[in-house]
């Protein structure tokens, strides 16, 4: 190929670092990095032989695609700026913090003729892919009861403390549980009702949170989604249980770790600021995801996760939060 796709990364936190490695593995030209502090952008740029840019506009002038690994309240304004500059956008989840913002992002990208990918990486995790494939193949029959677990520890104070600020991250429900909302929708279609209970509604001051969200699907299927920032640092438990009319699939991270370490004199307290639910793999799912995005941008093929998918998942998270406020079940169509 004559010219490689030029990529710029915005945000040099844990996701920026992971995505940068993904773009390199995909064979893209990682041109530059911009971050609020500057120092972390310089470090990340140096790692990949890229440049640190002073601001987003400077970066936008030099790239074909911009990858937004920034706090979620910046997804909407930065996507609009990138679209206005005629650049493709890759954006971390949740897509936005309101349905109106998500809709505006989609419209802006469409108008500008640029593509928008929301990084719902769960679809690229091999166990989730394998289960989705089994569902699609009909092994399970019609979907009946789905269970999802995603429980980890509260994001640590410091650079990642914006996670705990619901006005910036959407809170644990929109930031963490949105992964499983998107996956559940991909398996069972539209949701009619959302009902939620959470720890945060009882203890609003705490950065810890735990929620149980029930989804009633239009098809008659149902799902229980468990999410939490309540476990000790370093713990990340995930799992799913998909039961249909003809069979069931169970997976949980507790029981399928291929390596367990029982080391004497291990260091404790070394957990990363934000946990990632990774197991032993040849290729990490973030790289799989970025390779897919890269290939789809080059070829023009459809993304495996569309902006409409991401907006629908966001709606579930917002409906869950509305359920917490009202104490009622909420239809996703009710939220704005």
């Amino acid at each position: 190929m004559g010219s490689r796709m030029r990529v710029g990364i915005v945000g040099a936190g844990s996701m920026g670092r992971v995505h940068a490695a993904g773009w390199r593995a995909a064979g893209a030209d990682l041109v530059g990095v911009v971050s609020r502090g500057g120092a972390s952008a310089r470090a990340l740029a140096q790692t990949h032989g890229a440049r640190a840019f002073p601001d987003l506009d400077a970066l936008l002038r030099e790239v074909d695609v911009v990858d937004l690994c920034v706090p979620s309240d910046l997804h909407h304004p930065m996507t609009l700026r990138a679209a206005a500059a005629g650049k493709h956008v890759v954006c971390e989840k949740p897509m936005a913090l309101s349905v109106a913002d998500a809709d505006e992002m989609m419209r802006a990208c469409e108008r500008a003729g640029v593509r928008l990918f929301i990084a719902h990486v769960l679809r690229f995790f091999p166990q989730y892919r394998a289960a989705a494939e089994a569902v699609r193949s009909g092994h399970l029959g019609r979907m009946g009861v789905m269970r999802f677990r995603r429980v980890a520890y509260p994001p640590r104070e410091g650079a990642s403390s914006w996670f705990a600020d619901e006005s910036r991250s959407g809170g644990m429900i929109c930031d963490l549980m949105v992964h499983d909302f998107d996956y559940a929708l991909s398996l069972a279609g539209p949701v009619a009702r959302v009902f939620a209970r959470s720890l945060r509604s009882h203890h609003p001051a705490s950065s810890r949170n735990y929620a149980l969200v029930t989804l009633g699907f239009e098809s008659g299927a149902m799902a229980l989604v468990e999410g939490g920032w309540v476990y000790p640092a370093g713990t990340f438990r995930t799992g799913f249980d998909l039961a249909g009319s003809d069979g069931a699939i169970e997976w949980d991270s507790d029981s399928t770790e291929s390596i367990h370490r029982y080391l004497l004199l291990t260091e404790t307290g070394g957990a990363p600021e934000v946990g990632l639910p990774l197991t032993v793999m040849t290729e990490d799912p973030y790289t799989t995801e970025i390779k897919h995005v890269h290939a789809a941008l080059v070829s023009g093929e459809r993304f495996a996760v569309t902006p409409a998918d991401a907006a629908a998942a966001l709606r579930i998270g917002l409906a869950a939060r509305a359920s917490l406020r009202t104490g009622r079940s909420v239809a996703p169509s009710e939220v704005a």
């Binding site: 009946g144 009861v145 009902f195 029930t214 229980l224 039961a243 069979g247 069931a248």
Partner: peptide, 26 residues
Amino acid sequence: TAGLVTLTFANGVFAAVDCSWSRPTT
């Protein structure tokens, strides 16, 4: 044959109960 139940207790505890007949007979 399926139920996902959320219970809220007087003391504020909330709980989910999955009472489904969701395991295959195999």
